[in-house]
Design a binder for these strands. Structure first.
Length: 470
RNA sequence: CGGGCUGUGGCGCAGCUUGGUUAGCGCGCUGCGUUCGGGACGCAGAGGUCCCCGGUUCAAAUCCGGGCAGCCCGACCA
């Protein structure tokens, strides 16, 4: 096997990332600054993620709906912290139909405000609660430093919005989404280990009382916020007047949550699993799980390949046939490797004469000679185990870069290379400012055993996981 | 929005200091042939307002002025 077609991860991680995205034909920069064209391979990955998330969201009881892209500017201004948080990154439409608009329209940076204005209509009685709504949409935030998938001006995401009768119910739901939808999908499907915890006041969502987060570590040791679930309290219920008649005849404001994950997850997959040879996809998210390659065009090769494709499809795998024999075999192998296809089955006359084919496992880059009759089993084994192996590898890499720190100085040192775990109290009152001087932030707060903080926990005794981040 | 850098075929770059025939190179692309078990080779081709505007000059990719765009590093973010 030859050296990679791209720069090595260790040599220049940002450039490596760009080359993987380009080489795997996942996305291109759009014509307007910060925009992104998602190509079929990248979109295929997103669609598979989307399906996994959507199923779990529905299992959690939320229903899909769609709200408009344009939001009257006045809506945003109803919640002070919210508008303040988003003001710098808003795209505002001032003209339409050839003339200036009476009231500018904001292109949604999130749909909190529109959705809540309708919640106020829809919620009248405690019998209307909980109200659980999700939408799949694009949103726009005017980003100054775009990076494909990780931070673009327009991106695709899912945003859930819920209203509950009690604070406890809202909190429980926010945590349910965090765990059963987000953490589970990230760990079991993406194979990217995540820490869960909550954000400090500085890092939390504008308008939330508490922001819960899933934090992953990428291949260069930097953190990536992969998803958030917010307890909004009654911060939107009051200005938007979302109130209901309770069972005893009184009138209460609802308690709310919102939560989202985005196409950023595709970036997490690249940076979490990619190697010097390109992308490595967990089978669950591979648009093609198996590629059957014809090494050389010959009747017996072709018929053997066709039979294998049919057999593997019959077994329920996503299979592609690569019979482009006008392109060299080496080139095609490298192409599929870059794209991260979990298994390649190489069918050539030499092996075939002995009744064999070559099965190549992408994530381990291992080749194996397999008898024709055993290909189905061999492929099934790889597809069944690759995801867990990627997760184990990523977990080991993260743990190797995670250090217990006792002081701010130690946290700065370890946090520059990976994660440092340090007691929040040990950072001092201006700890976050001091960390920021070194481009380090508190990614999340947890109990010392890694579990989520509970109501009543003393903040200073919580552990801050700190590091550099995307 | 501060600091550094760069704009030359699709992509990556050279040429600019010291203006001077037809602006080169690698990859990619097209055709033909030989190849095909880890990015094949030969031959023949296509493709460029040298970011834009103005100036200097007999002559500007090259020098000067002004714009614009992009990249990297910081502050803000899914």
């Amino acid at each position: 096997m030859t050296k990679g077609a791209i720069v090595s991860r260790a040599e220049d991680f940002p450039r490596w990332y760009q080359e993987v995205i380009a080489g795997a034909e996942m996305a291109d920069n759009g014509p307007a600054r910060g925009t992104m064209v998602i190509r079929p391979w990248g979109y295929g990955i997103w669609e598979l993620m989307q399906a996994e998330l959507d199923r779990r969201i529905k299992e959690a009881g939320a229903e899909n709906a769609y709200f408009p892209l344009f939001i009257p500017e006045s809506f945003l201004k109803l919640e002070a912290e919210h508008v303040e948080g988003f003001a710098p990154e808003l795209a505002v439409v001032t003209h339409g139909g050839g003339k200036e608009l009476e009231e500018p329209l904001v292109v949604r940076p999130t749909s909190e405000t529109v959705i809540n204005s309708f919640f106020s209509k829809w919620v009248q009685s405690h019998r209307d609660l909980p109200l659980l709504v999700n939408q799949w949409a694009n949103v726009v935030r005017w980003e100054l430093r775009p990076r494909l998938f990780l931070r673009t001006t327009e991106f695709l995401w899912q945003e859930g919005h819920t209203a509950h009768a009690t604070e406890e119910d809202a909190r429980a739901y926010a945590l349910r989404i965090l765990d059963e939808v987000y953490r589970t999908t990230m760990v079991d499907i993406l194979g990217v280990p995540v820490l869960t915890g909550h954000k400090t006041a500085r890092e939390r969502f504008a308008g939330a009382n508490r922001t819960w987060t899933c934090e992953g570590m990428m291949g260069d040791g930097k953190a990536l916020q992969m998803g958030t679930s917010h307890e909004l309290g009654q911060n939107f219920a009051r200005p938007f007047d979302i109130a209901f008649s309770n069972a005893s005849g009184g009138r209460d404001y609802v308690w709310q949550t919102s939560w989202g994950v985005s196409t950023r997850l595709v970036g997490a997959l690249v940076m979490g699993h990619g190697d010097d040879f390109g992308l490595r996809l967990p089978p669950a998210l591979a648009p093609a799980q198996v590629v059957v390659l014809i090494v050389k065009d010959a009747p017996e090769v072709r018929s053997a390949a066709d039979a294998l494709v049919a057999e593997l499809r019959q077994a329920g795998h996503r299979v592609r046939l690569d019979d482009r024999t006008d392109t060299s075999f080496g080139r095609r192998s490298v192409d599929w490797e870059l794209k991260g296809v979990p298994v390649r089955v190489e069918v050539g006359p030499r092996d075939l004469a002995e009744g064999n084919v070559t099965v190549v496992t992408r994530h381990r880059r291992e080749k194996e000679n397999v008898a024709l009759g055993s290909v189905g089993a061999a492929v099934a084994t790889v597809l069944a185990t690759a995801g867990a192996e990627l997760l184990a590898e990523a977990t080991a890499a993260r743990d190797a870069r995670t250090v217990e720190a006792g002081s701010l100085a130690e946290a700065v040192e370890a946090g520059s290379e990976g994660f440092a775990r340090v007691r929040l109290g040990a950072l001092g009152p201006d700890g976050e400012d001091r960390l920021a001087e070194h481009a380090i932030s508190v990614r999340c707060l947890q109990r010392p055993d890694g579990s989520l903080a509970q109501v009543g926990d003393a903040e200073d005794d919580l552990v801050a996981v700190v590091g550099r981040s995307y």
